[in-house]
Amino acid sequence: MESNNLRKAGLKVTLPRVKILEILERNREGHMSAEDVYKALLEAGEDIGLATVYRVLTQFETAGIVTRHNFEGNQSVFELDDGGHHDHLICVECGHIEEFIDYLIEIRQREVAMQHGFELRDHALILYGICGKCREQKGN
């Protein structure tokens, strides 16, 4: 996403916003906490405070640039919002997050909502388990 896209989202182009957006784009496949973003900025030699990171991520969420998730515990993680819906598998051992799309699950969720008289506005499906790598390490 370029600085033009920041403007389109109604945000002024500032150095912290650009740098934080660059970090998120480099980690497009992952989910980053504010602390993860802050550490990545420090490693890149950027002098942007943790409070600024939190503020910018909240602004990005409001502008629809990122999506906030609260998986296990109360720590929020963020990912760039590409406009498409996906669900998540989370390893309870190592915290690895895997994204997936299953159209049959999506259809079934809409059917369940309709059966109960709901107009579905949004939903999130999170499955918790143990990933293959952790199972291998345990010898299962």
Rank of each mutant, 00 (worst) to 15 (best):
N74G: 15
E99M: 11
P16H: 01
I90H: 04
T62W: 09
N27L: 05
L127D: 04
I105H: 05
V53F: 06
E106C: 02
L21C: 06
L104I: 07
Q115C: 07
V37H: 00
D81Q: 08
L11P: 03
F78H: 05
D81L: 12
Q75I: 10
I97V: 15
A113N: 06
I90P: 01
L42H: 07
A40I: 10
I65Q: 04
R110S: 14
L125G: 04
S3D: 13
R7E: 15
I107A: 14
I23S: 08
L57A: 05
I23D: 00
C134Q: 10
L50Y: 12
I48G: 04
G95Q: 00
F60M: 13
V53Y: 03
E2G: 15
M114V: 11
L127M: 13
R110P: 09
V56W: 03
G117K: 02
A9Y: 02
E29T: 07
M1L: 08
L120R: 11
S33P: 05
C134E: 05
L80F: 06
N4T: 08
I23R: 08
V13F: 09
Q59R: 11
L104T: 08
E29K: 14
F78L: 06
A63P: 09
N4K: 11
K133P: 00
G73M: 04
Q59T: 06
E46R: 08
Q137L: 11
E35R: 03
D102K: 05
H88M: 04
D102P: 00
F60P: 03
T62N: 15
G64W: 09
A51T: 12
D81K: 04
I23V: 15
E22H: 02
E93T: 13
I23A: 10
N70D: 01
N140Q: 12
I48L: 11
E111H: 10
E22Q: 11
L120K: 12
S76G: 11
G49L: 11
E79G: 09
H69Q: 02
Y103T: 09
G139A: 09
E2P: 00
F60Q: 10
M32C: 07
L21H: 07
E61N: 02
C131S: 07
K8I: 10
E106N: 08
H69T: 02
T67L: 10
E2D: 14
N4L: 13
M1K: 10
I101S: 09
Y54N: 15
R28K: 14
I48T: 02
Y38G: 05
N4F: 14
G139T: 05
Q75D: 05
I97F: 03
A51P: 00
R7Y: 12
C91H: 01
A44D: 15
G49F: 13
I105M: 10
E119H: 10
E25G: 05
C94P: 01
I23K: 07
V92S: 06
F60I: 09
I126G: 01
R108F: 12
I20D: 02
A34Y: 01
S33Q: 07
G64Y: 09
E136A: 05
G139H: 01
V77E: 04
G129A: 12
D122I: 01
I101T: 13
I126S: 01
R7I: 13
K138C: 02
E29F: 06
E79P: 00
E119G: 12
Q137M: 12
H116T: 06
T58R: 15
T62P: 00
